[in-house]
Write a protein that binds this DNA or RNA. Structure first.
Lengths: 283, 283
DNA sequence: TCAACCATGAAATATTTTCATCATAATCCT
DNA sequence: AGGATTATGATGAAAATATTTCATGGTTGA
């Protein structure tokens, strides 16, 4: 199963646009897919049936039926191994209403974070962020809120943080000095703004380490990145939610804070003093 | 799912021998069965194809395809909830590490949201936000990320949104027209910036309805507000996390989106068009 | 600017799958 | 035992599904 996802992910960037849609659809809805026929899959992925066939052939299957059979069996094999554990877990879900539905959705996505990002990867990310000469943080539109948050909080612990500001004209100026010992954190969720991708592409040429925070391995920024941290935003039946990404940022910030605490404590003290001076905080 | 097994079990004794074989096969191999076609099922159950069809018809399905579709969906629905639960149990509760600790802390805080904010209060808040003549959103420092997010997303659904910008000089100007039929959302978490409190105090005199989003009933902005929505930010042993507030905002945005969907859908379409024009989003 | 190439979906075709029918076999009842 | 009833499987027609072909539109590179 893992191999299949890996295979899709690896091929993704070489695929034509239409087949990418199919790839995305399978990537995110595989278990739904094995029950649908070609026409339905095509509709879901918003492409023609022919394209679906071409995609599965490209993956090395002899046809759609073959694909569904093989993948379906794998999925259901996984299922039967875990089927016994279901019953015990079922008792959790209680009432249902808009508010609690959404909260539960958010909880689910945070849980998913735990399985999608390994401890090891998380630590690597922290390591990278801490050792960057300069740490550029880029996020546009909705994602700017997250970028702002990350930059704001990290500044307490790292001198190297630079939030990329939106003013379009001076972007090249902001990235003039970026190079291989720097890190770019690019935050982008679907729908991905073209602007973000374009900027990232340009900067990539200058060789910084790129960490993408995004909603799928297949998203354009993940494909451009050296390391992708995936936080899902899709809550069933409702709109996108940035809660899981926020939780991820929060974990990163905390880890960095702990790691840099020698630096951080004096810095916090200093800030505290400044705040007192400027009366920034209430008692 | 349970019902299906029960139904099979109940019918079993009235079934003719051949159909019993089918019943047994389904009973023990249901998840394998939904991937096979009639012929294959028949072979497995050691009966003829026709018998399989007769059996599923007897269960009230309109045909074999219908049976596979309906049952398949149920199985996969069960599957996804169960694996989710199992994954989370495995990934989070088990080990203890910084990363999973923080995720679990965040989950806890979101749960707390559900108990601290009643459905009723939530709906009142939504009501207020929708009916405001002008909707001012104020958040400084870290909280500005949240304010920005709320304002950005609500603008898709409400024309009345105004994000209060940080530039200090012109604040009075921004609030010149605020009055009793307006709503001010003030977002502030500990440590509360004096600035936020001061601005809120001044605006309060002009009589708008004030909704505070903050971490405690006792916080200064909650005290000033007409309605306080409490989201805890303190994670045991670590720093503050804005995950729960983010989840709250997300719930508010979604509720408003659903409520205003008549307005929202044309507006989203329009935006979609504009985005296409400006190539804001990638294909 | 144009030619060559590629990606794509619509439509035609091929294949598989489902299902109704009928003939036969098994079972029940008198 | 023998007719009536019910169950079953084989068969092929019909429906659903998968695959190929082909015309078109778009892109790339000379």
């Amino acid at each position: 199963m893992e191999e299949l996802f890996q295979q899709i992910s690896a091929k993704y960037k070489t695929l034509p646009p239409s087949q990418r849609k199919v790839a995305e659809y399978f990537f995110h809805n595989l278990n739904q897919a094995i029950l649908l026929n070609g026409t339905q899959i095509a509709t879901q992925a918003k492409v023609s049936e022919a394209t679906v066939i071409r995609f599965v052939n490209g993956l090395g299957f002899s046809g759609l039926s073959d694909f569904k059979r093989v993948v379906g069996q794998k999925i259901l094999a996984d299922y039967s191994t875990s089927t016994r554990l279901i019953e015990s877990a079922k008792t959790l879900e209680g009432r249902s209403s808009l508010f609690s539905d959404i909260l539960m959705g958010d909880i689910d996505k945070i849980r998913a974070l735990g399985s999608q990002i390994t401890e090891k990867k998380f630590n690597q990310a922290v390591e990278k962020l801490c050792s960057a000469r300069e740490l550029y943080i880029l996020g546009l539109r909705s994602s700017h809120a997250l970028a702002f948050y990350l930059a704001f909080d990290l500044r307490f612990f790292l001198d190297s943080v630079r939030l990329v500001e939106l003013g379009v004209g001076d972007l090249p100026e902001q990235f003039r000095d970026i190079g291989p010992s720097d890190v770019l954190v690019v935050i982008s969720f679907k729908r991905h703004t073209q602007e973000t991708v374009r900027i990232t592409e340009k900067i990539k040429k200058k060789g910084p380490f790129i960490i993408a925070i995004t909603n799928s391995e297949l998203s354009p920024t993940a494909q451009l990145s050296d390391m992708a941290l995936i936080a899902e935003t899709k809550i069933p039946a409702y709109f996108e939610s940035y809660t899981a990404p926020m939780s991820l940022l929060n974990a990163l910030i905390t880890a960095i804070a702990l790691r840099e605490k020698d630096k951080a404590i004096p810095m916090l003290n200093r800030l505290e003093k400044e705040f007192e001076l400027f009366d920034t905080f209430t008692k």
